[in-house]
Design a protein around this nucleic acid. Structure first.
Lengths: 335, 335
DNA sequence: TTGAAAGCGCTAACAT
DNA sequence: ATGTTAGCGCTTTCAA
């Protein structure tokens, strides 16, 4: 079972008895070749199992595009359906997606960006706004079309397909305050090098500061894992909050699980909220009051923006609204 | 802000004052160029923001590899951490991953495979064993190195990095039977064109048939979505089972949510089990008794196997064991 | 240690 | 409607 050389356009040309140019036309612009010839060519392609060589194509023409996405990790449902939508939209446009992950390491992002560009990515989808100076410089130097997602910002920071994390978190905190809670705790993600987390924290702080008598009694930062969220629950619970705002559904759900294990009733003893509205929030018991992030719309918009940029346009940011999804984990505090 | 042409190796050569061959060496085989020259070259590379062009590289040499993965969807946690591990392992070896999704459409797989190969994929990661004849023929004709995952099979069906779905499902069903259940229902995924689902169903059937007095009172097939799983719960619940075997955690968790909504207590009125051991099973209340699928190990093994194949080796399949994770959603039936 | 030059597979003028 | 041919950006002999 030796791996034979992939067939080239020359092989197809030989079998079909035409020139390579005709093969190329039959593939890229079928109308320009006679039906009979086309049929012969297609037969030859099938017989040989020919697939054009992307490298050669990319080199000979600039029509063939690839885009890259650099995300923290695929193992977080927070990005899953957005990425799926992104890739579907690209696929419809005949553009392939390359994915690379950083594991939430900001230094890793530039390496991955370079790797993707080497691979032929002519556009990039990046998460968030905050990045090391070296990364900004590179992006700027090479002037790579790129779209920023899962966040929002002023136009001079780039083109976004996302939402305002601070405003969203603020609205959630206001909602919690409106229920009568005054002693609030927050379990956030790790804020270092993660602007989305930092913004969510800032939003919660802003709402609390604006509310008389309200206080952020505890703030824990935790990786986006159920287990860690449980530990964070233990930590903030010591401060006796009446409500815990989770920086993500994983964090909220993890807190609920640990609360249950500790015999702390939700929302009886403490209310808990989530963020993102992934499946986890529905399965949690009680179901998590959370904030819906329009992942699918965002992913699709990111693809459209990138495609428009690649086509030479200068599309505007698409900023989405988030909405609070009321479920059972948030209730007024015990009086 | 016009998008300037990417710098080429010629630009770097000019700036560094050496030939392109030396640049190439400095990048691919740094030891072969004098330290002083190398430093000058690196400075030039940084100054220009140069990244080699993959297409040109791939064409000029066969050293540069890319591999492709074709999965049903990224929006299912069932694949998420396995894919993440797969990509990390590849990344360590300096190869990039291309991802394409089929949306569970078997016909789409061949299209995606061709697209990935056109993109330069010299190896593939595929899910499961069942595929249309045309796909098999193409794979065979082109003799593409590929590894099959999330499943297991005889050596003549290919090289696997996976597990035996039938055996795993059988063990789960036996476990349920051992608890004393006799009227069993199953909520499976959609079996058409999905060998993993078909195998899981077969495993459950086999266990039940081998057990005196046991009966599969209902079998519903449902998409892997919480909402649909709820509807499937309603459907099978009508047959009055004492235990419902979920074909995945999403299915099990969805059933639990709907049961709760219907006032049916789990595991009091009915036991429910999951499959996959994703976060959902832990958050579910009661937590789902489920079957751990070694996603991370599988993803990593798939990468290693593929890399070995690309290096010309003929690695063996890596078949993993699964294990039942006992939690709270399974209990003996009410007597 | 470095340079010159051929060639990888394809597309896009330009011819016919 | 089809063929000829020049290059796209790189790596790799082969020479110096």
């Amino acid at each position: 079972m030796t791996q034979n050389q992939p067939p080239t356009i020359d092989d197809v040309a030989k079998v079909a008895g035409v020139s390579t140019a005709t093969i190329s036309r039959a593939i890229n612009d079928p109308d320009k070749v006679a039906k009979a010839t086309r049929d012969r060519i297609n037969a030859a392609i099938d017989e040989l199992g020919y697939t054009p060589h992307f490298g050669a194509r990319a080199m000979a023409s600039s029509r063939f595009k690839t885009v890259g996405a650099v995300i923290p990790t695929m193992a977080n449902a927070m990005f899953a359906s957005g990425m799926q939508a992104f890739q579907e939209a690209l696929s419809e446009a005949g553009v392939t997606m390359l994915v690379a992950t950083t594991g939430y390491d900001p230094e890793a992002e530039l390496r991955q960006i370079r790797a993707l560009m080497t691979q032929g990515a002519s556009g990039l989808m990046l998460i968030g706004t905050e990045r090391p100076e070296a990364t900004r410089r590179f992006l700027n130097l090479r002037n790579v079309p790129h779209v920023l997602t899962w966040a929002a910002g002023p136009a001079d920071e780039g083109v976004f397909a996302g939402f305002d994390n601070r405003r969203a978190a603020k609205s959630m905190a206001e909602h919690v305050l409106a229920m009568g809670h005054r002693k609030i705790a927050m379990i956030a993600g790790i804020s270092a090098g993660n602007d989305r987390v930092a913004e969510r924290i800032a939003g919660v702080r802003a709402a609390i500061e604006a509310c008389d008598g309200a206080e952020l009694v505890a703030l824990a930062e935790s990786p986006y894992l159920l287990q860690n969220a449980g530990d964070a629950f233990d930590e903030v619970w010591a401060a006796k909050p009446t409500a815990i705002i989770g920086g993500s559904d994983v964090l909220g759900a993890g807190a609920v699980v640990r609360a249950r294990a500790r015999g702390v009733s939700v929302p009886g003893d403490v209310s808990v909220t989530g963020f993102d509205d992934i499946g986890l929030s529905l399965v949690s018991a009680p179901a998590l009051t959370t904030l819906r992030v329009p992942q699918i719309e965002m992913g699709r918009a990111a693809a459209e923006i990138l495609l428009a940029q690649l086509a030479g346009g200068t599309p505007k940011s698409a900023i989405f609204e988030t909405e609070i999804v009321e479920r059972a984990s948030l209730a007024p505090p015990r009086s």
